[in-house]
Design a binder for these strands. Structure first.
Length: 512
RNA sequence: CGCGGGGUAGAGCAGCCAGGCAGCUCGCCAGGCUCAUAACCUGGAGGUCGCGGGUUCAAAUCCCGCCCCCGCAACCA
């Protein structure tokens, strides 16, 4: 049986999850659900990046300077609550302050050290005493620390470097041989030019930091946060704690990342793995960013969207549907509540919801609420398109396949006009038509499982099926045409997506 | 010369990599239907494809130059 190991970035918890974090995680969740649906063994990892100076600063702001771990525990718990409420199906929520991660990092560091890729060097940086941190030229405002408004000192410190440049050719060769390693292609071009023209060795420890995982054998130094963070993907597989699990899950099949961190995931990380003698992840998907109503999303503009609020207003499925449909995976997009409301009204309520409702109503009217006699149908082409889209990470296109079925169903109703067939006593044609419609709805339910899991359940129930029982059978059977059993009782119930009273394009802002 | 994305109908977008009738959704106009959540279906109007040049039988698509918008570099996926 094939396996699928998918990860999200681990998140800084100096604030609560924004819709951007939810976006990354929804992509991973949808793909995890897709592969589970196919019957594969899936491991889905997400979590928090806790060894960062940013978290320390946030703890200080929260008045918990003396209890940083306490602050992190609190925040991590709130993130987990939010992720639970959003219905994510991760197998583990990893925190980089957990013991097995420290163990994995130590093992990894030693492996890289043994290869000879770690050397002691001199790091020259602009150091702000107030922040106890180094800044780059670009971080400064008028040459001063943005927080303390003081001119940082140029100081040197001895720390450890990773011989990243040693892997320049190997990285380029790998990307050349595996065009899917970085998707979309625009990001691949970007990363190739970075590796070829800009990549340098990087410092992977800090003598000045008090927070973070100590360097093995040199307790005075702390490991640079990125070096530690990337290793979480190995920890989550069992590296350093469970060799059998690690052998099973590693390498990861897919890392999902934002476009801002591809250098770390597509250059540093694979080089680290090569150095440690471990296989590389199969694919890295860099998704785009979105603006909010055309403006960049930022705390200072106060337009950060709270995903939990949207989910409460519209339901988890609607948020998932909107993000997966509106934005082509890999591209930038725009998040707007007007657009969300538009898609809810037009596509969910009017097209899909109303289709289900009218079909079920006619089944009640003309067949006493039971599935009529089976007839031929053909949806193999739709399934092929759907699977290809999902495999190629074009989730938006997979949804387009589903909506094509929705539209074709609505057209079929218009064409056949079951109400006329009923009057004319065209029993055979009427039964055939209704069976095709009902069975197509069953297939639509299945296709929606990864993206709109609650909706898929509800639709199956309306068709008189028990979701748990449906999902326990082999998909080769479930996805066959004609599996909807004649004579079964349907359960019309309330519309899937009720019309919203007025256009309450209410504000769901705030909660930074 | 920092890196990257973009400019296509009133709005939002696809098409560009592999050149071949300019397409989708919303909105607008007209018609149809009455099973349905005032939903659904059909048709129509609406576009110098940012600008200028080049290659070609043929350019939204390839090449050169220019203009404009946006993101990253500061919280932020």
């Amino acid at each position: 049986m094939s396996k699928f190991y998918v990860t999200t970035p681990i998140y800084y918890i100096n604030g609560l999850p924004s819709v951007g974090h939810a976006y990354s995680t929804i992509i991973a969740d949808a793909l995890a659900r897709y592969h589970r649906m196919k019957g594969e063994e899936v491991r889905f990892l997400t979590g928090t990046d806790e060894n960062s100076q940013k978290n320390v600063e946030a703890a200080e702001r929260a008045g918990m300077k003396d209890d940083i771990q306490g602050y992190l525990d609190q925040m991590a718990a709130r993130w987990q609550e939010a992720f639970d409420e959003l219905g994510f199906t991760h197998d583990r929520f990893i925190r980089t302050t957990e013991a097995d991660h420290a163990q994995a990092v130590e093992k990894f560091w030693k492996a890289v050290e043994k290869t000879g890729d770690i050397y002691l060097g001199e790091y020259v940086g602009l150091y702000c005493k107030g922040c106890e941190a180094f800044y780059g030229e670009a971080d400064l405002v008028d040459g001063k620390c943005p927080l303390h408004k003081t001119v940082p000192e140029a100081i040197k410190e001895k720390n450890y470097f990773f011989r990243l440049t040693k892997y320049r050719d190997a990285l380029l060769e790998h990307i050349g041989k595996h065009p899917d390693f970085v998707v979309p292609a625009s990001r691949r071009n970007e990363i190739v030019s970075y590796i070829r023209d800009f990549m340098t060795d990087i410092s992977i420890s800090r003598a000045s930091m008090k927070w973070g995982i100590p360097v093995p054998g040199d307790e005075k130094q702390r490991i640079y946060v990125w070096f530690d963070a990337l290793i979480n993907y190995l920890t989550g597989a069992g590296y350093g704690s469970d060799d059998a699990a690690c052998a099973k899950w590693w390498p990861a099949d897919l890392h999902i990342v934002g476009k801002d961190i591809i250098k770390f995931h597509c250059a540093l990380w694979p080089a680290m793995l090569m150095s440690a003698g471990l296989p590389l992840p199969t694919r890295v998907l860099a998704h785009g960013f979105f603006t909010v109503n055309g403006e960049k999303m930022s705390k200072s503009l106060g337009n950060v969207i709270d995903p939990v609020q949207i989910a409460r207003d519209y339901g988890n499925d609607v948020l998932r549907y909107f993000l997966m449909r509106e934005i082509r995976l890999g591209e930038d997009g725009d998040f707007s509540l007007d657009r969300l409301a538009q898609r809810y009204d037009g596509e969910l309520a009017n097209e899909l919801g109303n289709l289900a409702h009218r079909v079920l109503t006619m089944t009640e009217k003309y067949f006493d609420g039971t599935v009529p006699k089976r007839t031929d149908g053909f949806l193999a082409g739709a399934w092929d398109g759907y699977h290809l889209a999902m495999e190629e990470l074009r989730v938006h296109d997979a949804l387009e396949v589903v909506w094509k079925l929705v539209r074709e169903s609505n057209q079929l109703i218009e064409e056949r006009a079951p109400w006329k067939l009923a009057k004319l006593k065209e029993e055979k044609m009427l039964a055939d038509t209704m069976y095709v419609l009902l069975e197509t709805l069953r297939h639509i339910s299945w296709m929606l499982v990864p993206i709109m899991p609650d909706t898929a359940d509800r639709l199956l129930e309306k068709l008189g099926l028990a979701p748990a029982k449906e999902f326990s059978q082999a998909v080769e059977v479930a996805w066959r045409w004609g599996e909807l059993a004649p004579g079964a009782k349907i359960e019309k119930g309330e519309p899937l997506f009720p019309r919203r009273e007025g256009s309450q394009a209410a504000e769901a802002r705030g909660n930074s």
